[in-house]
Write a protein that binds this DNA or RNA. Structure first.
Lengths: 190, 190
DNA sequence: GTCTATAGGGTGATAGAC
DNA sequence: GTCTATCACCCTATAGAC
């Protein structure tokens, strides 16, 4: 069942991310990842020579998915800011599976980052920077407002990635939209 | 050197938090914690019968420090909202030491939470709730604005707890102050 | 209260068969 | 490409000396 190397590598990265998100980085052992992907530990280590290499595979996936998302964000009808804030509030994890592939990979990356892996931190930082720049364009170059909006998204993300829900998400999104629009019409303050 | 049980327990919890923050949860082994606190592994396990008990000790410390901080936040001259946002941006960790005791314990708790520990998540959620309620009081009961402000703080926190700096923190704080003040004078929107 | 020694289980990685 | 052994290491926790 599947001798295609690329497909097997993909399955392994998927399984890795899923386990890290669902059960924590500690549970994502080579054996558990391999089993979830339907191969043996030795099979995994043929494709990824070490656990570090597996992390690299995850980061590669992250960059690819993030690039796609950046395109969606750029062309989002509601605008980048609202898109960012709304998609920052994911749902149902910690045991359950996260449906959105990018969310899953980001959460996995951040969990790994908290273990002190510098590669994961800088990979995330780069993507975060790209997102903010896109928001900044929408708000007419208002650097501070852009950061404000991004922080709101990141704050929502922090809660939801721990399984803490945000009951009034729609209201928050509406308020962000207000902020962004007021930056176009009125002044800004800075 | 130190036969006072309470003092030794405190040193152990301190060392535990410090290692989790500085080197990741994985590095915080019983042996490493014991060594950092100047006792042996067996000595640690006399005071805390298991690693779970050590986590409980950390959570106890968290609640105590958080209660003190809540009092500072309530009486802060700049108001709870600005206090929250400003203190959310910590500096210099991941290898270095975090100077503020509460920040250190919170970061440690959140790292542990990401390993799937439900106790840590609910402990943090309770504290987070208390902070927001205090902000809500300041903004005259505007639930959504309170959440917005808190999200901004949490977003700053997320970055800084990964070692990513926020260059324009002062501007962000100023903008938050603006938002809070406008809720007093003008309307609010919702 | 604090120590050493050790049991018992799990983890990343290698070697070599198929 | 994928598997099964196997190694060396590290971790939590217990037992019992001091």
């Amino acid at each position: 069942m599947a001798r295609d190397p690329a497909a097997t590598r993909d399955r392994l990265v998927d399984a890795f991310a899923e386990i890290v998100v669902g059960s924590g980085a500690r549970s994502a052992t080579l054996e558990a990842v391999a089993a979830a992907a339907g191969v043996s530990k030795g099979g995994l280590l043929y494709h990824f020579g070490s656990k570090d290499a597996l992390v690299d595979g995850l980061l590669e996936r992250l960059r690819k998915l993030a690039a796609e998302d950046l395109e969606q964000m750029r062309t989002a009808p509601e605008g980048p800011a609202v898109y960012y804030v709304r998609t920052s509030a994911t749902e149902g994890l910690q045991g359950d599976e996260v449906v959105d592939p990018l969310s899953r990979v980001i959460i996995a990356t951040m969990r790994l980052a908290q273990e002190g892996d510098t590669r994961t931190v800088s990979a995330y930082a780069a993507i975060n920077e790209a997102w903010r720049q896109l928001i900044e364009v929408q708000v007419g170059g208002d650097r501070v407002l852009a950061r404000l909006v991004q922080c709101i998204g990141d704050g929502l993300w922090a809660s939801s990635s721990m399984g803490i829900p945000t009951p009034d998400l729609d209201d928050v999104v509406a308020r962000v939209q207000q902020l962004v629009e007021s930056s176009r019409h009125g002044d800004g303050g800075a």
